[in-house]
Design a protein around this nucleic acid. Structure first.
Lengths: 237, 237
DNA sequence: GTCTATAGTCGGATAGAC
DNA sequence: GTCTATCCGACTATAGAC
């Protein structure tokens, strides 16, 4: 651990290394990113990585912590609002649907928009492909919370309890409609023959996203029970 | 290029290197996979990589080609059947819906099931995160074709032409409902607190997947036009 | 805190014997 | 086709001057 210094550029190198780490680890993954490349790109000394973080792995952990912090500051309050609405037993179906719409818009904005979200998602994906010792940091700090918010509102709208297996699977599936634009960005851009997802395209995704999610909720009937009811249930909120 | 030998184990080393490459490149990515690790795991000589493939990059290309070949043999005929049905102007809406259901089942089976599909998806994801010079191989050989089949049937069911931007975006979004279980496998397993997606879970995904996709198609109204029609269109197939 | 120098390891590629 | 030996550059980490 570095002792606090008293200069104007306190922690400047440390911060720069983390920001560079977000970019490079995202692009190439943990193993394929060299400390030399990190130090050079951050205009820092090679030794500074060991000094500030104890080594490459320490820097990586710091990068994950930084990412989780940034993203939760961005969407944490929104997720809390969703949970509050869902905890209110008297919330109307329309209120819940409106919450769902906000969640779609937030999801698309946070996942797809912005430069930093790209590096973030890249690291997230790397961890999904080959989880490192720091996977927990991302899962508990971010992914689980996003899922919980979606599951809460979908649970209310479908009548399934939040610990229900089908609800959890469906929650992931529904989120997948938006996650794919981040995860399959390269293929998406190729398919649309463009270089970035414009604001116009994002707005289009939000619009049909809301339509699709509402259609799914409206058409919901549980399928996971052995002898599941095959008619619509009209008696849910 | 190696000259054909006349022994019983003709190409045995070559084949073994490719199979090992699928696994290791998938796990660690191109850069982070060493030729030494490849050779050792394949029980082959270090020099054999250069001999057979001209180097590490050549082996990687061969791995991608192998993957595309395997997967297209698996689903190519099915995709062709979908295209045939969609090209038939007299196909009923029910026939098209049935085709869509088959597509969901195929998608889930191919993407999520099987051991080899894991390594395949891992490489696919690596290429999406940081496309290499061989990205085209995967895109043109596999991804584009899968998208085309989905777009064809969704185009018929929604009335949108296959070159329509909204159709292409929606196609990706709908596929995302299933892709997420591969892409977010680590988080999914963690969320369900299990170690693999059992057949029972996959069947559950197929069942609600079909329900969700049908709900989306039923609730479809275009959103991409500036002054889009806001009622249902009942005049499509 | 920053920088240089260096130790010790591992990387890809290849030459040349068999 | 296979294998050994080897080149040489790049890697992480650390010691020690400033």
């Amino acid at each position: 651990m570095p002792s606090k210094n008293t200069h104007a550029n306190e922690g400047a190198t440390r911060r720069k290394l983390i920001e560079t780490g977000v970019r490079l680890f995202g692009l190439h993954g943990f193993e394929a990113t060299s400390t030399r490349a990190l130090a050079t790109a951050a205009d820092a000394n090679l030794g500074s990585i060991s000094y500030h973080f104890g080594g490459k792995e320490g820097l990586y952990r710091a990068v994950l912590e930084h990412i989780v912090e940034i993203k939760m500051a961005e969407i944490g309050p929104g997720l809390d609002r969703v949970l509050t609405v869902c905890a209110d037993a008297s919330a109307s179906r329309e209120k819940l649907l409106e919450t769902l719409r906000v969640l779609v818009r937030t999801m698309v904005g946070v996942m797809i928009g912005g430069e930093q979200s790209q590096a973030f998602s890249q690291i997230m994906m790397q961890e999904q492909i080959a989880p490192t010792a720091s996977f927990d940091l991302l899962y508990s700090g971010f992914f689980e919370k996003v899922q919980a918010a979606w599951a809460a509102v979908l649970g209310r709208l479908t009548g399934l309890p939040t610990d229900n297996r089908e609800l959890r699977l469906r929650t992931l599936s529904i989120m997948g409609q938006f996650v794919i634009f981040r995860v399959g960005m390269a293929a998406t851009l190729r398919r649309l023959d463009c270089e970035k997802l414009s604001d116009e395209i994002m707005e289009c995704i939000v619009r049909f996203g809301i339509q699709q999610v509402e259609a799914i909720v409206d058409g919901f009937t549980p399928v996971d029970q052995p002898g599941c009811a095959c008619g619509r249930q009209e008696d849910r909120i």
